[in-house]
Amino acid sequence: MEIEAFLSLFKKPFTVKYPFEPSPAPEGFRGRTEFTDDCVGCGACAAVCPAEAITVRDEGDTRVLKVDHGLCIFCGTCQDTCPWEGIELTEKFEMATLDKETVYDEVEHELIFCEGCGGVITTRKHMEKIQESIKDVGLIDKDRATIENLCTSCKRRHFAKEISEAMSLGS
């Protein structure tokens, strides 16, 4: 140890002069959580987040999803749970800021409403993606399966009425 101490005087130090020298994170580092362009606003991430850092709020005809980096524990559960690759943990770790707005990451989606009861069905993007993903699936009646202006309860009531009308006509 004595020899090493003496020789270290002449060697380059081990420390990096961060922030004057860069110190990048490796690939796969779990850094700042951000919504991507693929987010549909389904809210699955908010349901599984252990720290309850992601909130889903419906305001008027927009749905706002917000992730609070002060609460986020950077575990990556949202990334693993999201079916659409809509949220990801980037490799950014320099999040210190004086501006409170940068502590949150928000994304807004347009909502579609039920013509029957006026309640929220889901976001337009979510509906489009669902329709996109089932368009090649073999269904008997594609038109009936993709009614996009009724929520599930109103849809059930609508089909139940159709079926009962068909049965009463038939009899």
Partner: peptide, 10 residues
């Protein structure tokens, strides 16, 4: 300074 350099620091 000398103490730091001997400990691989700046």
């Amino acid at each position: 300074k000398v103490r730091a350099r001997m400990q691989n620091r700046r």
